[in-house]
Amino acid sequence: MKYGTTVGTAVCCGLLLVGAMAGCGRKSDISLSPRDALVQGWQNFRLAEYDLATQDFNAALAGAKAGSDEFLQATFGLANVWNLRRPGEDTARAKKLYEQVIEQAPDHDLAAWSTLALARLQHVVPVGHDPDYPAVRAAYRALIEKYPNHLAAKEASIYLNALLISTLETNQLLQAVSNLKAYIESGAREFRAPALSLLAVSYNTLGRQQERLEAEIESFKNVEIDPANPFNEYAWAYWNIATIAEFEVGNFELAREYYRQLIKEYPADIRVFPSKEALARMDRVEAELSAGKKVTR
């Protein structure tokens, strides 16, 4: 091959490579204000662009006044990236950053969320490890005590009681019942429906079915639904209450009411045929019992 050809080919390849490299790799806009950098950082976080999110949060950190709201937001953002990114997580670094937020502004909104994140780090452990449950429960309790009215504490309360219930041990269940009753009586609106559902689950394990049914009905009345989500609907709740009323409490009248509601409001739901069968089954069972016959399955 001639020297000229080799040089020409090399130049062309070089140009192509430079061109290709110029098009590769996305960069974050570092000329943004701290506030905009934070918004962009969270956007990149949601897109799983963790390196870009880190750049954005670092840019916000550099541009913000130490100790300011934006400074704390950026630290919290960075902590979330290092905590939750996969691969490349660095939970030790995340912990430090969360602790920084708590230390710098213990009364700030983000201090409560950082405390929750630290508790969750102990609870949601890597695959193959078991959480240190007493430590996790202690962390949730500490958060609830420190920030009693904060949403993070209410969320922690739900996790704490779910953990107690999942032991299926009577003492722990009774403790959960007491906690959840107190939570509901406090008048908290947030996480009220899951608190009532957890109460119902506790009663179920304790064999207190009538109380379970009442708690489920209350939970249904308090459920928070994202109106834009087409998969969020009440069909499951109707079915849940109807089946508890039928099979655990023996309250056929109430069961009928909820089965009918499901059929009427959700005619295309998968449980419509089973609901129709349930209505027919209850009629048959009542007829057999009234006639003194043995109930057939």
């Binding site: 996790y159 999942s166 957890l198 994202d226």
Partner: peptide, 13 residues
């Protein structure tokens, strides 16, 4: 809140 309640509470139970 709705997503937290539906995704992070029940599976363990």
């Amino acid at each position: 809140r709705a997503l937290t309640a539906s995704r992070q509470v029940w599976e363990e139970l």
